[in-house]
């Protein structure tokens, strides 16, 4: 089959690879009908996240049609079913899965010895991501093997186009979870950094969870316009001061809830000197992330507020204002 294969920094190729096969009774194979590209794929493209190896197949936002099921899938899936595949592989049986903490499933990361060393504790296995998350082949391919398929799927009905369902694989639940973790109450101002797909979903989730005011921050007019369409107040960080505008919008008190939908590749600008320094340090591997948004959030968040971080960070961040973090109730 054809697949998009990672070969190194900024080098992804459309290769011919062998077809996946059922390896475990709980596996299923799907014929992929759609697979989205994610901000997280950009981090891999730029080779900022450790643990990728040449030959890895990309893609973790996949849906398709079941073409083969293992004996252990137990009637939960059958040939011809249409499913969205969440990017987190889950067993549905371990302590974390039972608590609903699916992204930290204790069973599915097949390289947990590696991940335990790097992160202290392994997280779930992921499709098309690094070997720290199991190194499972991804869905930018004609076929995908879904491990633990009896639990790792969302069945969807026919008649709804892929584009309206595909968001279930990652960005909608990611944005929703980010907002849920803020424990939003009706008086809250929720500030959201980044208006990419994840940010857009977080904005809409915060609205649906009843936030009083949602403030969206980015520099791309097209993305800001989409945030505004969803009812958010927008800040363009290239032309306005984020700190001043957020203060203005909250009577000087700062937003109660802050969500980072940007992650480790915050925009680098001469007017934000910390980003230039981060970028330089990142180049010589003195720092793995550019945590400008984290700094800004900790500084501007209302004391006693909540910070939620769906944005991806890969390792180590410098110069976080821990004094502010602790004193505000962190």
């Amino acid at each position: 089959m054809k697949a998009l294969v990672w070969h190194g920094k900024e080098d992804i190729r459309c290769d011919t690879v062998t077809d996946p096969e059922i390896q475990d009774p709980r596996d299923a194979i799907i014929k992929v009908t759609s697979c989205a590209i994610c901000g997280s794929d950009l981090h891999l493209f730029h080779n900022y996240i450790p643990g990728m190896m040449p030959g890895d197949i990309m893609g973790h936002e996949t849906m398709g049609e079941v073409v083969e099921v293992g004996a252990g899938v137990d009637g939960k899936l059958k040939k011809g079913d249409r499913i969205v595949v969440p990017f987190t592989i889950i067993c549905g049986e371990c302590e974390q899965c039972k608590r609903g903490n699916f992204s930290v499933c204790e069973t599915t990361n097949r390289k947990r010895h590696l991940a335990d060393k790097v992160f202290g504790h392994a997280t779930a296995g992921l499709f098309g991501y690094t070997h720290l998350t199991g190194g499972y082949p991804g869905g930018q391919a004609e076929y995908l093997r879904v491990p633990f398929a009896d639990a790792t799927h969302i069945k969807v009905p026919a008649g709804i186009p892929d584009e309206q369902l595909l968001f279930l694989s990652d960005i909608f639940p990611t944005g929703w979870q980010a907002a849920v973790q803020c424990d939003i109450v009706p008086t809250d101002t929720v500030a959201i950094w980044g208006c990419g797909p994840v940010g857009q979903m977080a904005i809409r989730s915060a609205m649906l969870l009843g936030a009083n005011q949602v403030v969206a921050i980015d520099c791309l007019p097209e993305r800001l316009s989409m945030a505004e369409a969803a009812g958010a107040t927008t800040i363009n960080f290239e032309t306005e001061s984020v700190l001043e505008r957020l203060k203005e919008l909250t009577d000087g008190k700062g937003p109660e809830k802050c969500i980072d939908c940007v992650g480790m590749e915050a925009h680098v600008m001469a007017s934000l000197p910390d980003t230039v320094l981060d970028r330089a340090k990142q180049m010589v591997m003195l720092e793995s992330d550019r945590p400008h948004v984290l700094r800004e959030m900790i500084y501007v968040c209302r004391p006693g507020g909540i910070i939620s971080v769906p944005g991806v960070y890969s390792g180590f961040s410098d110069m976080l204002p821990m004094g502010a973090f602790m004193n505000k109730g962190g």
Partner: peptide, 9 residues
């Protein structure tokens, strides 16, 4: 069991 490269693009 994971797919291996047959021919690179």
């Amino acid at each position: 069991g994971d797919p291996t490269i047959v021919e690179s693009g």
